[in-house]
Amino acid sequence: MKYIAVGNVIVFVLDIVTRGYATMMLMFSPSAVLHGQIWRLFTFILIPLNRFNPSRPLTLLWFVMSTFFYYWLGTSLERQWGTTRFNVFYFLGVVLNLILGFVLNVGVSMYYVNMSLFFSFATLYPDMQVLLYGILPLKVKWLAWFDVALFGYDIVSNLLSRAWAWALMPVVAILNYLIFFWEDLAGMLGRGRERAAYRTNHRTIQFKKAQKDIQQRKGYLHKCAVCGITDADDPNMEFRYCSKCNGYYCYCMKHINDHVHVQ
């Protein structure tokens, strides 16, 4: 991913110097490839998502932020997966885009494939907190759902405007993601069904009802057999039941490993 980020920087600078001519010569074009410009099969990967616009100075800021963000995502996934698996994921997205470009005879970009990196990161680290624009703290999974909404909006809007190729590009990126994470997603759905079945199980409902009755009757649910502290006295205290004691004896975290076993 670092080579792609460096390539983005180089093309961005060349675009400033050549007034966009560098991107014109590097972007994917089926007809140009068929006329011998083979380099376009690879160089379109290096075209930055945010091109410099002299009339909009903030494009430089957006370029720096987006390039650093995707570099961070890519290198994080590469550390987690290993370089080989990450390369297979990324270049499978490249190949799918090229197939789409040749079939529909249109130019394609890596915009949606780069965005799908965030889906992968959110699947691996859903509860990690990031600072949106360096200010607002948000969990990765919520940003991923926002990403899903953007994909859906782009698909629907392009279908309505009959821009079939642009409607299929996000679908291709999602397909690439599903190929790699289908088993993980199926496992998460299975665990979700198991948790739902557990919560609605008759024995679980009766057990929780019995716990609630005890708590209402005594004013607490757990009480340490050594010091007598209860969850009503300290709601943040954790309690455990000792498996070595002969009976149902509860202990606070201070005494679970420091008590005489009841025999």
Rank of each mutant, 00 (worst) to 15 (best):
K2T: 06
Y3V: 11
A5I: 10
G7W: 01
N8A: 15
I10C: 09
I10T: 10
V13L: 15
D15T: 08
D15C: 08
I16C: 12
T18A: 08
T18C: 02
A22W: 03
S29V: 09
V33P: 01
Q37R: 11
R40K: 08
L41H: 00
F42I: 14
F44M: 08
P48W: 09
R51P: 01
R56Q: 15
P57R: 10
L58G: 00
L60K: 09
L61Q: 07
T67Q: 09
Y70Q: 11
Y71C: 06
Y71N: 09
Y71K: 04
S76E: 12
E78N: 12
G82K: 07
T83G: 08
R85V: 12
R85I: 07
F86W: 11
F86D: 03
V88Y: 00
V88H: 00
F89Q: 03
L92P: 03
L96M: 09
G101C: 06
V103M: 04
L104W: 09
V106H: 00
V106R: 05
V108G: 04
Y112M: 13
V113W: 00
N114E: 08
L117F: 06
S120T: 10
Y125G: 00
P126V: 11
P126G: 11
Q129F: 01
Q129E: 15
V130I: 13
P137F: 13
P137H: 05
L138A: 06
K139R: 11
V140H: 07
V140N: 07
K141E: 08
K141N: 08
A144F: 12
D147K: 06
V148E: 00
L150E: 02
F151P: 00
F151T: 14
D154E: 15
S157N: 14
A163E: 08
A165L: 01
W166G: 13
W166M: 14
A167G: 06
L168S: 06
V171R: 04
I174W: 03
I174H: 09
I174R: 07
L175K: 02
N176P: 01
L178Y: 10
I179C: 14
I179Q: 09
I179S: 07
F180L: 09
F180Q: 02
E183V: 04
L185T: 08
R191K: 14
R193W: 12
R193I: 10
A197W: 00
Y198T: 15
R203M: 14
T204A: 10
K212D: 14
Q216Y: 10
K218A: 02
K218G: 07
Y220G: 00
L221Y: 01
L221Q: 03
C224Y: 04
A225V: 10
A232E: 09
D233K: 03
D234H: 12
P235D: 01
E238P: 01
F239D: 13
F239K: 12
R240S: 14
Y241M: 15
C242E: 06
S243D: 07
K244S: 11
N246E: 10
Y248M: 12
Y249G: 02
M253F: 03
K254L: 05
K254Y: 15
H259C: 08
H261K: 02
